[in-house]
Amino acid sequence: MAVCDYVEQMNAIKELLNKKSYNSYFQKVIGSPQIDEDRLLMMSISLQDTNLTIPEQNIYITSAMLVQLALNTHERVADPDAVRQERQLAVLAGDYYSGMYYHLLAYLENTELITSLATAIKVVNEHNISLFQNTVHTFEEFLNEFKEVEIAVIEQFCLHFQATKYISFFNEFLFLKKMIKEYEGFQAGKSVLFFERLKEHYFQEGTNVPISNLSKDDSEKLSQLSYNYVEESINRLNNMIEDLPVLPPMLQMRIQEVLSRIHGLTRLSVEEG
């Protein structure tokens, strides 16, 4: 598919997604949901080898994106900066998007995809609670759950359409994307999950020290440790790119943007650490 075709398809999906998620009161109080265009592109690429028509692809991608919107919107419920009504509406908007994914697929009579996406919702929420509860034993176990939360919806979507060749690659890409937010939080002195768990697993003492109060040495050490994980992920991503068919230029461009952003942040972290 040519770049302009992807752009056209993504615009069509965004339009459909906006239409399906629209509610004037949500719009007024919490605004439009943020659409992750990378996920949209990933799902579009996954379906290229299937026999689905473009309109069919668009509606299936929209249903999976509604699931992702629901999960992301529910994360906003605990936003400390939100006023009560915004938090209340975040609960209902997330529920509404979930209902809308079910509704869309019910009318397409695709109960199997309803099940697959429900399984993704179940997995994400189980992992979210497990991550919150902090009962995993090793940092690698934590990392697996941390990544699974990001990939679960796309993974189930790809498995349903037997379009599995990109899953591992998407997994690394989404991890690196997530790490951008983690680094931004870390550098702002916020308590972000990845760095909190990294601190707990690698520092024998002083784990109660907030990230914002870490010593320069400890902060530098944490940056270096985190960079090791990021670097491993980048290596895996690059190896996969070599093994996969040529990626659409649009995705190649996004990969370069993400890598460049993460390099900038990790460099800044190590330098400032």
């Binding site: 999960l71 419920v77 199997e112 919702i121």
Partner: peptide, 22 residues
């Protein structure tokens, strides 16, 4: 627990519901 856990629990239960319904 807190609002976050309640949201995760509610979403988990809804997902289980759809797994049964399908």
């Amino acid at each position: 627990w807190n609002d976050k856990i309640a949201m995760y629990a509610g979403d988990y239960i809804l997902a289980r519901s759809l797994e049964y319904m399908t």
